[in-house]
């Protein structure tokens, strides 16, 4: 069985073009029925100011947030799958998402009492999400590390338990929440990009940039880890450091994203597999490829979520799961296996 691979440049260029096309389509489609055409031919409709407002303040930030969220979740999933050599791994599996949701939920539940709408209020939710994901990652690391060695099997099992515990605490907060907080809290359990603003994107960017820098150095160690931890160490890779960086990068990427858009499933699990089907297992392609395809798919899902039940806005998490799950099963049946067998 001879393996043929598309080139790095061709793959990335193809995905970038696809992302651009998806973004333009997402900008053009929406509940208000303003197309891009109205902007290109000023004066034709007489409603240009409204159209411009809808595009620049509602659709555009939502498109950007969807792309960033999709990229962050998919890349985190690719890192987790490579690190744990487990095809099901994603930030949700090891409880990072639940920790982030709990952190943000605590801020929101407390919010009515002491948070204003000023800087603290704006930073409160993403910092809460970030703190929640970092705290759950740190706890996970402490529990699963003995004498500097982190057991990856233990990480998965403990992560599942921590995630369930954090979800239970979030549930208690929801149960005890007042009406305002309840609406905000419920919105996470399904995930939605409806709250996108340029301010939020501005808050998100530094975290995602930091995560991107952390993850950029992980491609080679993750490739080596596909041979097992012993061989990776023999090949001169600092395996334990790679594990720490990967867990840190994933929680930095996932925490604030979950804080803003809630828990969106399936993107983190499915996208890396789709990318590997084309590029093969090399993480130097899988990581950037997942970022681009994650952006494309979440953008598509969110556009569907916006228009499928106009004027209602279906939570995007429902769309990704409703479309993603059957698609994934179909792909598994067709391929009969995946590239990262446990």
């Amino acid at each position: 069985m001879i393996i043929r691979r598309p080139g790095f440049g061709a793959t990335m260029a193809g995905l970038a073009v696809l992302l651009l096309a998806t973004a333009i389509a997402a900008l053009a489609i929406g509940a208000t029925g303003f197309g891009l055409g109205g902007l290109l031919h000023p004066g034709s409709a007489g409603r240009d100011d409204v159209a411009w407002l809808v595009l620049s303040q509602i659709r555009a930030p939502r498109v950007v947030l969807a792309a960033l969220t999709g990229a962050a979740l998919a890349t985190s999933g690719a890192v987790m799958q490579g690190l744990f050599r487990n095809p099901l791994a994603d930030p949700g599996l090891i409880g990072v998402s639940s920790g982030a949701a709990l952190g943000a939920a605590i801020v929101i539940a407390a919010g009515g009492a002491w948070l204003g709408s000023g800087a603290i209020g704006r930073w409160g939710v993403p910092v809460g999400g970030m703190a929640g994901s970092l705290a759950s990652t740190a706890l996970l690391y402490l529990i699963t590390t003995r004498e500097g060695v982190t057991s990856t099997n233990l990480v998965i099992l403990t992560g599942v338990a921590l995630g369930a515990f954090a979800a239970a605490l979030t549930g208690i907060l929801i149960f005890r929440a007042n009406d305002t907080a309840l609406r905000d809290l419920t919105f996470w359990t399904m995930g939605s990009l409806a709250g996108a603003t340029w301010t939020r994107i501005g808050l998100l960017l530094p975290f995602l940039l930091a995560a991107a820098i952390l993850m950029a150095g992980l491609a080679s160690p993750l490739n080596a880890l596909l041979l097992g931890e012993a061989d990776a160490a023999l090949m001169g890779y600092r395996v334990e450091r790679a594990k720490r960086l990967a867990m840190l990068g994933v929680s930095v990427a996932t925490g604030p994203v979950v804080a803003f858009v809630g828990v969106i499933g399936f993107i983190g699990v499915v996208v890396p597999h789709l990318v590997r089907m084309v590029t093969g297992p090399d993480h130097r392609l899988v990581l950037p490829g997942s970022a681009l395809l994650g952006a494309i798919l979440l953008l598509t899902a969110d556009t569907i979520a916006r228009i499928i039940a106009i004027p209602a806005d279906v939570p995007v998490g429902v769309v990704t799961a409703a479309i993603g799950a059957p698609l994934f099963v179909w792909l598994l049946i067709r391929l009969h296996d995946v590239d990262v067998p446990s």
Partner: peptide, 18 residues
């Protein structure tokens, strides 16, 4: 030595070169 991914033989060998 196990490999848990669909690498080609040449790709596997190149993994050894840091």
């Amino acid at each position: 030595s196990v490999l848990r991914a669909r690498f080609s033989v040449a790709e596997l060998v190149r993994l050894g070169i840091r």
